[in-house]
Amino acid sequence: MVLYKNGAVVTDPWRHLEDDEDLPQVGPVTISWKRWLSERGSIARDPAELGVRAPNTVTAAEIGADAHRFGLIALFFPNFGDGRAFSQARVLRSRFGFTGELRATGSVLRDLLQFMQRCGIDAFEVSPRAIEENWFAALSEFDLFYQPAADNRPWIARQRLGATP
C-alpha cells in the first residue's frame, strides 16, 4: 500500500499492531478499536504515539469521546458504496475538534478522495496503482462546493454573499 499525506507519498511512520502484539515502549503504534475498549484503562501513552483503527460501525460520538487520546484515527471504507466513515470523519473534525491524522483505509479509490478530504480526512492509504494513474489529481478536481464540510473551504452560498468566483 501507498500512503499519501500533505501532498506527497510518504513512508508510514506508524506500526499497526495485531491484538496479541505487546505495545512497544516507544514509537507510534495503532491498535484496534476492540483492543482500545478492553485496555484503555491501562494504556498511558503520549497521544502522538497512539493511534486507533476504528470500524465504521462505531458511532462518531463514541470515538469522539476518546479522540483526545489519539494522534491518529484510521477509518475504514469496506467497499465503494459504504459511506459511514464519511460521517465519522466529519463529526470527529467538526464536533470533537480532532486535530490528529484522520486516515482513510480499505477501499480508498480515486473518485472518493475529494469527498474524503472534504470530510476531514488528511491521509489516504491507497493501492500503488494510485501513483501511475495519478489519482491525487482528483483532490483538486473541483474548486467550488455547494455546502460547508470539515475542510474549511469556502462554499458557494457564502461566496455569493461576498466575492466573485
Binding site: 464519511f86 469527498f115 455546502q147 464540510a149 458557494i156 452560498a157
Partner: peptide
C-alpha cells in the same frame, strides 16, 4: 438541490 449536490458526507448512503 444546491446543498445536496455532490454532498461529501451523503453521497454514499
Amino acid at each position: 438541490r444546491q446543498w445536496s449536490t455532490l454532498h461529501p458526507e451523503f453521497s454514499w448512503l
